[in-house]
Design a binder for these strands. Structure first.
Lengths: 208, 208
DNA sequence: AGGTGTGCTTGACACTGTCAAGTTGTACTG
DNA sequence: CAGTACAACTTGACAGTGTCAAGCACACCT
C-alpha cells in the first residue's frame, strides 16, 4: 500500500510513540499494550517492532525523550529572574505535570530502560548533569563536591517527591477543605525555597 | 486433595500474598502474573481468585498491608529520642527499603487500589493521619492547620522523594566515587533534618 | 533487468487474565 | 445418620497479549 501523501519517512515511529504516551497518560504504563498502540497508530500489530526492539524499547524511547526534555527544562531555569531553587522546583513540577506520560516512565527503573538502553542512559546522565549545574548556581561553585552531591540529592528528593505525590500520589485527595490544590502546591514550593535559602545562608555561602 | 497437616485455614491467602510480594521485589509490579503467583504458591491458577477479586485485588491487599505497616512505623517514631523530623525521615526510608514490594505498589495510583478498594483507602488515610500527628510533634500543635498541611506535604515530599530515588531511582548510580551510598543517604537525612530545624526555629516555634 | 534493503503485513505460538462449571471435604441441620 | 449447604479449591475454555518467523511491495542502486 502506498503511504498517504501527508505521511513522511518516520511518521509511524512518531505515531506509535504518541499513541503510547497518550495511553500511559490516560491509563498508566501498566496497561500499555503493544497491540493497542498499533491499533491507535493505525498500523498492523507488528509495525511497532520495526522501530522498537520490543515493549521495553518503547518505554526506553519515551524516557529518553523525557530525560532530554527535563535537561532542557533545567537549562531554561538559568534564564529566569527567580531564585534558582524556587525556579528549579517549579520547573521540575511543571515538567512532570505537562509530560505525565513521560514522567511516569522515566523514574520506573523496572521499565524505563536506563540500565539496558544506552541512549536512555546518556539522556538521564545529561539531565543529572544539568541538575548539578543548577545546584552549583544555588550553593555557589566553591562548595565541596561531596557536599554538593548531598545538596543535589536533597533538592532532587524534594522536587521528585512533590511531583510524584501530586501527579500520581494521594496528596491531591488530602488537601484540607477551604483551600485548593494549586495554592497548596504553591505554599509547599514557597516553604521549600525559603527553607533552602535559610540553609544556604547558614552554610555561609553567597545567598544569591 | 487433603491439605497437608501444617496448612491451616487461610494459609493459601498468605502464600499467594507472599509470593506476589516476592515477585514484585524481584521483578517489579509490572511483571506480576496471576498464574506465576499461583505456581509459586503451589496452587492452581484459579485459587487466588478465591481470596482476591482479581489482579487489582492482590495489589490492593498488598498496599493495604503496606499502609498499615507505615502507620505503625510512624507511631514507633514517638518512642525514639531523636529529633522527630530526623526520626521520621529514617522511619520512612527504612520502611521503603525493608518492604520494597509493598512500597512499590502503595504509591502507584494506577494499581494500588486506593480509590477503588475501601480497606486500602482507610489504611492510607490512617497512615496520613499518623504523618499529621508526627508533624504536630515537629512544629508544635498550635500551628495554623493550613500551614501544618503545607509542612506535612513538604516533609512527605522530601521523605518520599528520597525513598523512591533510592530504591527504584537513578540516585544510587550517581553517588560520586570515594563515598558509598549509605553515608550519602545519611548525609542527605542530616542535611534535611538540619534544614527543617532551621525553618522551625525561624517560624518562632518551639525548637524541641 | 535483477538484486538489495526498508517498511511494513499476515500468520502462528505460548502465555496471560478471567469467566464458568465442576469437585471435594467439612459442618451443620433435621 | 442422610441431606444439604458451603468453603476451598480444581479443571476447562476463551479472548487478548507479546513476540518469533515468514512474506509482500515498493524504492533505489548497479
Amino acid at each position: 500500500m502506498v503511504p498517504a501523501p501527508s505521511e513522511q519517512h518516520g511518521d509511524v515511529r512518531r505515531l506509535v510513540l504518541d499513541a503510547a504516551i497518550a495511553i500511559i497518560e490516560l491509563e498508566g504504563a501498566e496497561s500499555l499494550s503493544m497491540r493497542e498502540v498499533a491499533r491507535r497508530a493505525g498500523v498492523s500489530h507488528q509495525a511497532p517492532y520495526h522501530y522498537f526492539s520490543d515493549r521495553s524499547g518503547i518505554f526506553a524511547a519515551i524516557s529518553e525523550e523525557g530525560f532530554t526534555g527535563l535537561a532542557q527544562a533545567f537549562r531554561d531555569v538559568h534564564e529566569t529572574e527567580m531564585p534558582a531553587a524556587k525556579a528549579g522546583f517549579i520547573a521540575y513540577l511543571n515538567f512532570a505535570r505537562e509530560h505525565v506520560g513521560h514522567f511516569r516512565v522515566m523514574f520506573r527503573n523496572d521499565i524505563c530502560g536506563v540500565t539496558t538502553h544506552a541512549l536512555t542512559q546518556t539522556a538521564a546522565d545529561s539531565a543529572f548533569e544539568e541538575l548539578r549545574l543548577m545546584v552549583s548556581r544555588i550553593t555557589g561553585p566553591e562548595i565541596d563536591p561531596n557536599k554538593a552531591f548531598t545538596f543535589a540529592a536533597m533538592l532532587w528528593s524534594l522536587s521528585h517527591g512533590l511531583a510524584t505525590l501530586v501527579i500520581d500520589g494521594p496528596l491531591p485527595n488530602k488537601v484540607p477543605p477551604g483551600t485548593d490544590l494549586e495554592s497548596q502546591i504553591q505554599a509547599v514550593i514557597d516553604l521549600s525555597s525559603h527553607m533552602v535559602a535559610l540553609e544556604v545562608a547558614e552554610m555561609g555561602l553567597l545567598p544569591r
